[in-house]
Design a protein around this nucleic acid. Sequence first.
DNA 1: GCTGTTTTTATGTGCATACATAAAAACCTT
DNA 2: AAGGTTTTTATGTATGCACATAAAAACAGC
Lengths: 233, 233
Amino acid sequence: MTTQTFRDWQSVQTEVLRRIHAREWKPGDLIPNEADLAQEFGCARTTVNRALRAVAESGLLDRRRKAGTRVAAQPIAKATMNIAVIRTEVEDRGQTYTYRRVSFEKIVPDAIIQGSFKTGDASPLLHVVALHLADGAPYALEDRWIDPNVLANAPGEGFETISANEWLLKNTPYTHGQIGFSARSATGDQAALLQCPEASAVFTIDRTTWDQDKTVTQVRLLFAPGHKIQTQL
Amino acid sequence: MTTQTFRDWQSVQTEVLRRIHAREWKPGDLIPNEADLAQEFGCARTTVNRALRAVAESGLLDRRRKAGTRVAAQPIAKATMNIAVIRTEVEDRGQTYTYRRVSFEKIVPDAIIQGSFKTGDASPLLHVVALHLADGAPYALEDRWIDPNVLANAPGEGFETISANEWLLKNTPYTHGQIGFSARSATGDQAALLQCPEASAVFTIDRTTWDQDKTVTQVRLLFAPGHKIQTQL
DNA sequence: GCTGTTTTTATGTGCATACATAAAAACCTT
DNA sequence: AAGGTTTTTATGTATGCACATAAAAACAGC
């Protein structure tokens, strides 16, 4: 066996992936330690470390101090979805983006929304409904609740020409968020706005973002029937 | 201003994130270079590099050689979904997993499936339909096409007791794949198996995996109505 | 045998240094 | 001024070394 040399971490990574895919290292197997691999590959341990760390991030390796590195028994595929501003998303498809605000009001939300904002019982929130269009056709329906405080520095903003989706992403700091994907049947109102038959299956994204412990905004995006989001593994 | 010291890359990362969130560094801003930050933070440039690289991976920073590092103008949220074996997914919810094979045959697929396998025009593929149940209730319907060659080493396998989902993930090497999420209306057959009303909105995952240039398998997973996948941002 | 303690060991990380590389900026040349 | 070439510079990465840390394994005491 010709002990080949792999000088940079990318080629070490490639070789490690090759061995995993070729089942030279099978799921559950303990692989040689960093020092040994470094010697075999003719590079520094740091380089091996960098490569193994990258592979571990993708979910194909499990690493634990002292216990060593082993090929994941349950290879968890990590699909990374890029969630961009909707305008950008549409434009990247080569389509013309337009935006239409449907409604904007300050009202006291129902108990469910209220609960997730942990706000005082009957304090009102901003509620925006808007439509995102691609080449004139409905692309996504945005239904959003916003903590009024986040608009304190932009008192005039009514999201008539710029979407809350875009404005918030650019102007509002947040520390963490949660996102969920599901399928829903369009209600009559929703179907009318999306110009699709009632009860159509619509792809749905629910997102909530917080700044520290304060809920900033909560949004439901209903995409026109047929919408699909894709990514590589 | 007390020039604080940040000795490890995690605290440098935290500080960088703080500055971005606090809008001390605004979207589009060019931030100081690594060497300057290293001096400010009282650590080595490698440490700053590690921290900035991590933040850049999350999409909040754009880095280019010579051009420097800037806060992303269009902060792209990267949502990483963990796609595990369905059995594990169910068990992790604390539910009892059961599996039922619905059908298994070797037939020549329609043109669409055929095309994605790039196989000879009329060569037959394996077609498996199976149901995954959680606590006895339908959880997901799996509709899968498999290249017969991948079963060459397991001639007896008919996916009667172990799902193709699990068997393939454990036994079949693959180099890359594609995954897509969408919403679909359940057909009559599908609804019957999932025990839901016809035309219910069902969350759908389509996945294709390749080994080098050969298509290994293609699967469509229809989840019972109400299914939602979630992740943190 | 069963505890709790110590040792060992593989990964995790920090640092100084060196060089690689991409791309902006400066400098020519015509 | 336009176009091509060189320089500069910020990031990217490899290396040897040191030490930190978590956890398995060995050991001790009872």
